[in-house]
Design a protein around this nucleic acid. Structure first.
Length: 184
DNA sequence: CGGGTTTGACCTGCGC
DNA sequence: GCGCAGGTCAAACCCG
């Protein structure tokens, strides 16, 4: 089976890809998550649009890229839930919708699967991965949409503290575009 | 043998 | 308080 490469650079919550088209997202599943679409090898026409908030029904055409600074504060709080009564602080999460035959995309990092759960209203399970790089606490979730099993939603949590283990190829343009839109 | 996967148990937050 | 769902742990297992 083919394996579409997908890159998720360290230090920046954005992505560059080798072959995808970016577009949109339904915000119904990951609340407060910054979302991008990556239709790899697909026929989507690129970034369709972004906006601050998403209130779009799932099965429509969506235009979004939601920032969520309010979600996580510094984005570096990943200490074990302390024994004290502090509120649990989550890192910002960024989701990518990808049209792909494979669940696990090659984003250049090494991941170890640590769990899998059945998800309500979804016949596909959600898989949980951690970055295996020492000291890097980035996590990701991979889930296939029950409504469209050709679409994989990958949710990243945290920022890599190290470069990818594979040489980076281009798609810097899309990365730049995404950052432009994010600053919108 | 080391690293990754599987899977059931456990923990936690949230809504009722 | 209870039940449910999401998220994590960890032991067993698999594979190169």
């Amino acid at each position: 089976m083919e394996n579409y490469p997908l890159r998720f650079p360290s230090q920046q919550p954005s992505a560059s890809f080798t072959t995808p088209c970016l577009s949109i997202f339904p915000a119904d599943m990951i609340d407060g998550t910054q979302v991008f679409d990556t239709f790899q090898g697909g026929n989507s026409a690129g970034i369709l649009g972004l906006k601050d908030e998403v209130e779009v029904p799932t099965s429509q055409v969506y235009g979004t890229c939601q920032l969520m600074e309010s979600f996580a504060g510094s984005g570096e709080n990943d200490e074990k839930p302390s024994t004290k009564k502090e509120k649990k602080v989550r890192k910002p999460r960024y989701a990518f919708r990808t049209r792909s035959q494979v669940d696990v995309l090659d984003d250049g990092y090494r991941w170890r699967k640590y769990g899998q759960k059945a998800v309500k209203n979804n016949r596909f399970p959600r898989s949980y991965y951690k970055c295996t790089h020492q000291g890097c606490n980035v996590k990701k979730q991979v889930q296939r949409l029950s409504g469209d099993e050709g679409i994989v939603v990958t949710t990243y949590e945290g920022v890599h503290t190290h470069p990818t283990e594979k040489p980076h190829d281009n798609f810097q343009d899309i990365l730049n575009q995404m950052q432009m839109y994010s600053n919108f």
